[in-house]
């Protein structure tokens, strides 16, 4: 572990792991309901990768926390206010277009973030990032292709993708917020300051959305409150009710 305040590192790891946990959960809700069999496979595969990444991030988080907990304890026994994912990933799936737009907006951030984290001064962080970045390189390629295909498809698919972008874009800014935890991570060389990723992100997103014939909304308003736990959306509580039900109803069991 790098020489850094333990609680700051823990918060950083929770932010990473909660993002993948909650988005992986959302994506898994599609099982058996997607527009075409290839998409069922792709969505299950994406969800599976994200749950695998969660095991690594939250597994390390539990070690850093040092209270003898496991990744499962963190996933299944925390209440909403202790989750540190960005609001974007907890938003409902909506239609397939909204799900894939959300995925693209997240994957683009994640691919850039992980690209930096492979050089982290914390060897465990670097190791997790190395494994996850290979998966995410594929995720972003696929979600970008789908956004382009549907944005530049029929009139209806274009309209739906623009509506998805309009709904989701105000949640993008939270991924680039910086606070004292991020500053501590940056100073220790563990993780980049999120704000420093914005330029590369904007360039990537602009290129894909341009090809998709979609327009970035003009409003600058940013919804936030997830990554610091100040105020999640109403959606998270319902998601946790479902996800945590067995562990809560039958505490202390082995599964």
């Amino acid at each position: 572990m790098a020489d850094v305040d333990k609680n700051n590192l823990l918060q950083f790891l929770l932010r990473m792991g909660d993002n993948t946990l909650i988005l992986g959960h959302r994506v898994s809700e599609w099982c058996g309901h997607s527009p075409v069999l290839e998409e069922d496979i792709a969505l299950a595969n994406t969800a599976l990768d994200m749950i695998g990444q969660t095991q690594m991030w939250l597994g390390y988080a539990a070690e850093v926390q040092g209270e003898g907990k496991t990744a499962d304890d963190l996933a299944f026994l925390r209440d909403a206010w202790d989750f540190r994912n960005v609001l974007l990933v907890e938003l409902p799936n909506g239609d397939f277009g909204q799900t894939l737009m959300r995925q693209f907006l997240y994957d683009a951030w994640s691919s850039i973030m992980l690209g930096r984290l492979v050089k982290s001064s914390d060897p465990r962080v670097a190791e997790i990032a190395a494994k996850a970045s290979k998966e995410v390189a594929y995720h972003v390629e696929r979600s970008a292709d789908t956004v382009v295909g549907l944005g530049d498809g029929t009139e209806e698919s274009h309209r739906r993708m623009q509506a998805a972008l309009d709904y989701l874009y105000p949640y993008v800014g939270e991924m680039f917020e910086s606070d004292e935890i991020d500053r501590a991570m940056a100073e220790a060389g563990i993780a980049p300051d999120p704000a420093s990723l914005r330029e590369e992100y904007d360039a990537l997103v602009a290129r894909v959305l341009d090809e998709a014939t979609l327009t970035v909304p003009e409003g600058k308003y940013v919804h936030k409150g997830g990554r610091n736990g100040y105020m999640h959306t109403e959606h998270l509580g319902h998601l946790l009710c479902e996800m945590q039900w067995l562990q809560r109803a039958y505490p202390g069991c082995e599964w």
């Binding site: 898994s28 099982c31 069999l37 299950a44 599976l48 299944f76 479902e242 996800m243 067995l246 599964w255």
Partner: peptide, 30 residues
Amino acid sequence: VGQLPEGNWITRAPTLERKAILLAKVQDEA
């Protein structure tokens, strides 16, 4: 169609490992 009864529990799987195993299985079925 077999994805549906199993998908019914993916979002309620009790551990991360069980969720991953079930996702992998349903992906195989598809």
